[in-house]
Design a binder for these strands. Structure first.
Lengths: 262, 262
DNA sequence: GCGACGGAGCTACCATACAAGCCTTGTATG
DNA sequence: CATACAAGGCTTGTATGGTAGCTCCGTCGC
């Protein structure tokens, strides 16, 4: 009557875990990760229809894991499921972006507040190393790498604060912010500004200047709002229309081609 | 080639939505809500096995919606799924409680900071009304009602801050805290203390005293830590053992009876 | 007596089939 | 020509079957 596994298992608890799984990853987890990446990178633009059957055929799996992945994505509001109608990549909602920004700012600032007290030389060196790589990616014009390093920077920053599992919470909020930031990246002057802001945070962190660090990070995070108006004017179809909540449009960007570029 | 629903649909976007659905709720959503309530109320104690087949039989539905509900619960770490082994109500992890507390505190304090600037007489009156009801529930010794009102209080507080959708984020973190608090409720002196702390927050809010409000709420929220050591010593089987992460024990509390009380 | 091994019984995972609802579109009708 | 209507094709929701994997426990070998 008593069952227990042969040994402790620390992994495989969170479905959302990315990275390399030790042996094999569940199909659901794999599909979830693929779709999540394509949505946050805008490879699947907001408003795109996501058919369970179609995805299952493309990925060569059955509907079940695809459906389960879509349910998880729906729970984090990256897709919208309309029963008996269809599933769509959620459009960018400015209020939702502001809420996500609020959550992220609250958590990261609180974490930074503790990081100021805890950081050591190694932490500072690691952060600066990431910034150097970011400058390289910036010079090379590699947007994907740049974004990956940006994520690494903020992640490392939270590790310094001593809260290791906190990153997952931020990730959920960050997904919505990333889509907006992806759109603003093509704008000039943005990239260098981001790196400068990161540098200011590390500088203040090294000098254990709490107020300066928090102020710098806040300014950095709130930069999302700088261009969002411009972006919305340029790509209105990617945003939810004012006064018209969540209207799916069952029309793909390019007929017959799924997941085409913007 | 163009499909769109007959009219705008604002509801049914989040699976986690509780409350009364307009027409009919999906089975998955219903099962999810039931299980979530039973877990956070400790009706299903940490460590309990949750078999898809068994739950499906008890609730008279198929395994599919039960499975999907369990996946969602696993995503918020309320259950742990061990592939090919079993699903269990997650044990209370002190580090996890601390992380959840960190998230909640960061968000609620940031929201309160804005609420101080926005609150009007009606808001204050509503909050005080909730406190009166809480005193009644306290006098009557009704724990469930008390907890419901506690939730209503904090929820109303976030509405005052102007961030309506933020409560959902807090809810996820709060679930883990609630289990710990449920256990500490039987301890004497706790309930009156909680009400007093709530009152202090509202008082400071009414006087627009930012520092006092934030300080009072912080003290209130950190009260979770006061008794957690005592609780863990009293109910060690509900917590994850030190140095032994997530070991499911396939043995129910009372043989043959599911969901028995603690 | 004690340890290794293999079947039994359970689990979650994935695949598939059926059901119910919405939208489109062809068609009949005023 | 415009409108009402019904069939068809699509969608997601639910139900069920089959498979791989893990633990338990009886049995065999030492």
């Amino acid at each position: 009557m008593d069952r227990r596994p042969s040994q402790t298992r620390s992994a495989a608890s969170h479905t959302r875990e990315s990275g390399v799984s030790p042996a094999r990853e569940s199909v659901r987890s794999r599909v979830h990760g693929i779709l999540r990446g394509q949505i946050t990178s805008l490879e699947l633009p907001p408003g795109s229809p996501l058919s369970e059957n179609e995805l299952a055929n493309e990925l060569q799996v059955s509907r079940t894991p695809v459906r389960e992945a879509l349910i998880l994505l729906g729970d984090e509001a990256l897709v919208e499921v309309f029963p008996k109608l269809g599933t769509f990549v959620s459009r960018i909602s400015v209020p939702a972006v502001m809420e996500a920004q609020f959550v992220r700012e609250a958590i990261e600032l609180a974490a930074l507040h503790e990081a100021v007290k805890r950081s050591d030389a190694q932490d500072i060196a690691d952060l600066r190393a990431i910034l150097d790589l970011q400058r390289e990616a910036c010079a090379a014009g590699d947007a994907d790498t740049f974004f990956g390093l940006d994520e690494a920077f903020h992640r490392r920053l939270m590790e310094v604060s001593g809260h290791r599992t906190l990153w997952r919470t931020v990730t959920t909020a960050k997904a919505h912010l990333d889509r907006a930031r992806r759109l603003s990246l093509p704008l000039p002057h943005r990239v260098e500004t981001l790196i400068d802001e990161h540098t200011s945070v590390v500088d203040a962190l090294e000098e254990r200047d709490d107020a300066a660090a928090v102020g710098a990070l806040r300014g950095h995070l709130q930069g999302v709002f700088d261009d969002i108006g411009t972006i919305q004017a340029r790509h209105p179809e990617l945003f939810v229309a004012d006064g018209d909540e969540a209207v799916p449009v069952r029309r793909r960007v390019h007929p017959g081609v799924r997941g085409s570029q913007v």
